[in-house]
């Protein structure tokens, strides 16, 4: 087993152990933090497919994350007040079943990623960054100015959605759901990266002209990856809304996009467990630096600048003793 695999296993085990210990020592806050890490790690794992494997620097993944959140919030709010979402052409009612909410969140964020990706991928490089950022901002402003679902104030979810056979209000149960989804997403990323599609995606990242010359459309390959990436972020968003029992435009804000990107880079792009490690580190920093100073973001910013300038390859890169950063 190489060092990266060993470190990955350690991260997976550590993330599983933290809430169990938290439970044993009666520190429920630790369980919440671990759940947050799992969910944000899932969003980062999604972004890693676009950004790491596909080389698409998306600064707009908050749009998919937030849409997933709003799907959960909107469906739950309709379930609560027994008002159907639509009556025509067919009756669509709200629901609090995760097994319904997740596919809807995945489809909605996937469609959004398809539209945003199809337009953004007409360009590359710095334009791609600015355009994904701008489209996410559009969704953000829409959420603010559309009053039906709380507008600027957001939308509360009064009852956490349900999962058959589990008590989602039990923090450990809810953590287990998020953790399993995270591991599944990482497993899927692994298979994807090793597959024929992964090969084509790597080709598109390294040299789009080469890929086109062998008759594979870089646009289609990248767009497919972008949609998969957005879907994962959307699923994470639905979980995040359930964790907080609240969804607001801040989930859609560009700070959220930036943070998801920070998780990925902090952990190391194209590292399977990189985003989860990055999210964990970020949450730990937030809570330790937050104790030191209320201006902890200043310290975090300085730390990130230092990381970019002096330590390339992310945390896993440093731990695995190899810097890789293309």
């Amino acid at each position: 087993m190489n060092r990266e695999a060993a470190i990955s296993l350690l991260i997976a085990a550590g993330l599983l152990a933290a809430p169990l210990l938290g439970n044993a020592f009666d520190e429920p806050f630790v369980i919440t933090l671990a759940t947050k890490v799992a969910i944000l790690g899932l969003a980062g794992t999604g972004l890693n497919i676009a950004l790491g494997y596909g080389g698409m620097v998306s600064l707009g993944h908050a749009a998919f994350f937030g849409l997933g959140g709003y799907v959960a919030g909107i469906l739950a709010s309709h379930a609560l007040n027994y008002e159907p979402l639509f009556t025509a052409p067919l009756l669509v009612e709200g629901t609090t079943q995760m097994l319904i909410i997740w596919p809807v969140a995945i489809v909605v964020s996937g469609v959004a990623a398809l539209v945003i990706g199809a337009l953004s991928l007409r360009t590359t490089g710095v334009f791609f960054i600015m355009i994904t950022l701008a489209f996410a901002q559009m969704v953000y402003y829409f959420a603010i100015s559309w009053p039906a679902y709380g507008g600027e104030d957001g939308l509360s979810i009064y009852i956490r959605s349900e999962f058959p056979g589990l008590n989602t209000l039990n923090p450990l149960h809810f953590f287990a759901i998020c953790y399993v989804l995270l591991i599944l997403a990482i497993g899927f990323s692994f298979l994807l990266s090793q597959s024929r599609f992964g090969l084509a995606l790597g080709g598109a990242r390294q040299n789009a002209q080469r890929l086109a010359t062998v008759g594979i459309s870089p646009f289609r390959v990248k767009l497919t990856a972008f949609v998969i990436s957005g879907m994962m972020a959307g699923l994470a968003g639905a979980l995040y809304a359930d964790l907080n029992r609240f969804v607001s435009p801040s989930m859609l804000s560009w700070h959220t996009s930036g943070e998801i990107m920070v998780f990925v880079i902090l952990g190391g792009t194209r590292r399977l467990f990189g985003p989860a490690a990055g999210a964990a580190l970020y949450i730990v920093l937030e809570n330790t630096l937050g104790d030191v100073s209320e201006h902890w973001l200043l310290l975090l910013g300085a730390l990130l600048v230092a990381l970019v300038l002096f330590a390339r390859g992310g945390v896993i890169g440093i731990l695995a003793g190899q810097t890789r950063h293309a």
Binding site: Q194, R196, G198
Partner: peptide
């Protein structure tokens, strides 16, 4: 391999390791 899979028209396979 990229060229071979292109000719086979089998690029959009997501789960089976190419290796």
């Amino acid at each position: 391999m990229l060229a071979v899979q292109s000719v086979e028209r089998k690029t959009f396979r997501f789960l089976k390791p190419a290796r």
